[in-house]
Design a protein around this nucleic acid. Structure first.
Lengths: 242, 242
DNA sequence: CGGAGAATTGAATTTTATCAACTGATGTGG
DNA sequence: CCACATCAGTTGATAAAATTCAATTCTCCG
């Protein structure tokens, strides 16, 4: 086990809750090891009941659902600090898949320890519910965007969400972040075709709102993008880090 | 308090978990009373932090998010047995609203009791996480449908979902259920215009797949509808009833 | 019976998807 | 170091889908 929880660099970030020494100790007993994953590799698969749960230490990934017709709907972006596999742990199996978009480092937990956690650490149990509720919020926001907004507003929303997540996990500076996701991924988030996503990105770029190129996303005019987005975007909150 | 939990008619339904007498006793101490709500009245509002949580005993409702532009996205249908307000209890406030579609009878809980529940009843705490994860699944399914499917498939999906939920809560018989929601509501679920929803319904009716009229939904050809729907629809599961 | 909200229908218009072709960057092997 | 292959990104033309608008009919209640 390379990194003990108490010195986990993620905990230093202002986004994450600070734990009491006792809580930290409990968390530490749950950690089973670390796992490195290459870009493009699957981490969790729809329909499987993973015996392991993960906290992302480094790298980015995509959550998505595959459709019979071969299409897929991307459900969300995964950033450091995110917890993966709760669904499989709580229901019998995963309802979506997760695939690494970059090389990743994962902190590994054991599904079987969950019962113990609920019994012994009500605060941490509450945090798990919080995480599930947070996912629910994110999906609701996405659904409202995809269901009700036009292409421009959808893309604007996705860019702001990406930047927000990147800032949370300390990956962005001054509206600039590394962008590991493809336009194709963006299109599958938003229910748009790749072509139309591309044109919309070009239009935002031309309007001086945001630039996506060379694996890098730059937000030039946050206010302008926010005006485009019709749904209320929740401010970043203090998250629990399992 | 009119109905004690142990004789709650919902518990008799096969959809809901049976509790041990102890668990039932705990649940009973949480119940604060009952609330009747008229059709069309708001139950929970986006942005508010309701001090109360509800379990639906009778009636149907809609969860939805309002957009700045005046549109709204319906996030899901609420049926008897559903738990309302978890989001407000876990995060600081509700991220969506709930409005009654029919007269309703709600079982009332107190938000403040949640901490006690997490401390004393790990099983029930786990159930709350389960409920949040279930919501997440439903939203993911909706997002995949709205994001990737055409109008026919979307409407087919919504009709099957409605029927499934109605069967779960004992409201449907032989593919026939009372339909309290308007075509306008359906349109806001699916990200379609009312007009197009209407035409699509007409086309499904003409194809002998399903009929929606006189406040009643009839599924004539479940297999036909399922073939239209491209996303995997989870089978009804055993749900916890809080 | 009359009025209000809901459902339905037929254009006209707008938005988005699909198709096909092309550019540019990256990487590999001879 | 160049030829070649590959893949992401870009663009224009065309087709399909959904929205909007306008008008009419239907249903439920008072």
């Amino acid at each position: 086990m390379q990194i003990p929880c108490r010195t986990c660099p993620l905990r230093a970030l202002p986004t994450f809750q600070t734990l009491t020494p006792e809580e930290l100790a409990v968390t530490e007993t749950l950690k089973r090891g670390e796992l490195r994953v290459e870009a493009g590799m699957p981490i969790l698969s729809e329909g499987s009941s993973s015996p392991q749960l993960f906290t992302v230490l480094e790298g980015q990934a995509l959550r998505f659902k595959s459709l019979e017709c071969g299409k897929r709907q991307v459900l969300g972006f995964v950033f450091p600090g995110d917890f993966l596999g709760l669904q499989a742990a709580v229901m019998s199996e995963m309802e979506h898949s997760v695939t690494a978009a970059t090389p990743m480092l994962l902190c590994v937990f054991d599904r079987g320890d969950l019962v113990r956690l609920y019994r012994d650490s009500p605060n941490r149990a509450f945090d798990l519910t919080w995480l599930a509720a947070e996912e629910e919020s994110m999906l609701a926001e996405a659904l409202a965007t995809v269901g009700q907004q036009n292409a421009r507003a959808r893309v604007a929303w996705a860019l702001l969400r990406l930047m927000d997540r990147a800032e949370q996990s300390g990956l962005a500076r001054d509206g600039v972040m590394p962008m590991p996701f493809r336009q194709h991924d963006l299109a599958d988030v938003l229910g748009l075709s790749v072509v139309h996503t591309n044109k919309t990105l070009a239009s935002l770029r031309a309007g001086g709102l945001a630039t996506l190129r060379d694996r890098q996303l730059t937000i030039h005019d946050r206010g302008g993008l926010e005006r485009l987005v019709g749904v209320t975007m929740r401010r970043t909150r203090l998250r629990p880090l399992i």
